[in-house]
């Protein structure tokens, strides 16, 4: 029997994979993909709670799904701007490696 806890653990595991990717990888594009994984892990737990908490009429709580819709829209806008920044960075420095961009370090 699949319970709410299964979905929450799977979502937490996906978030942890994305988190580890952000911490461990040095390629800025891979870091960006890991950010997307983390956003989508949050979406999965929101949808699981929406299905779990039925309202009085016995239908899922659609407020959570509207929230997920907003998250997906903001994430798409964020990807477009972030990739444009990566292209601008590549033009300026010819690198996508975060250790080569250390002006703010120390």
């Amino acid at each position: 029997m699949i319970t709410l806890g299964h979905y929450l653990i799977v979502s937490g595991l996906l978030f942890t994979i994305g988190f580890a990717g952000v911490l461990l990888r040095r390629n800025i594009i891979i870091i960006f993909m890991s950010l997307e994984l983390m956003l989508n892990a949050a979406n999965l737990s929101l949808v699981a709670f929406s299905r779990f908490r039925l309202d009085a009429a016995g239908v899922p709580n659609y407020h959570a799904q509207v929230f997920v819709f907003f998250i997906i829209t903001v994430a798409a806008a964020e990807v477009a701007v972030g990739l444009a920044i990566i292209v601008a960075l590549y033009r300026a420095r010819q690198t996508t490696h975060v250790e080569d961009v250390s002006t703010l370090k120390y």
Partner: peptide
């Protein structure tokens, strides 16, 4: 946190239709 959450052990309720 999920282990302490009581609701996490329940399965999903059936939809009305």
């Amino acid at each position: 946190v999920v282990g302490q959450l009581g609701a996490a052990q329940q399965s999903f309720p059936p939809l009305a239709s």
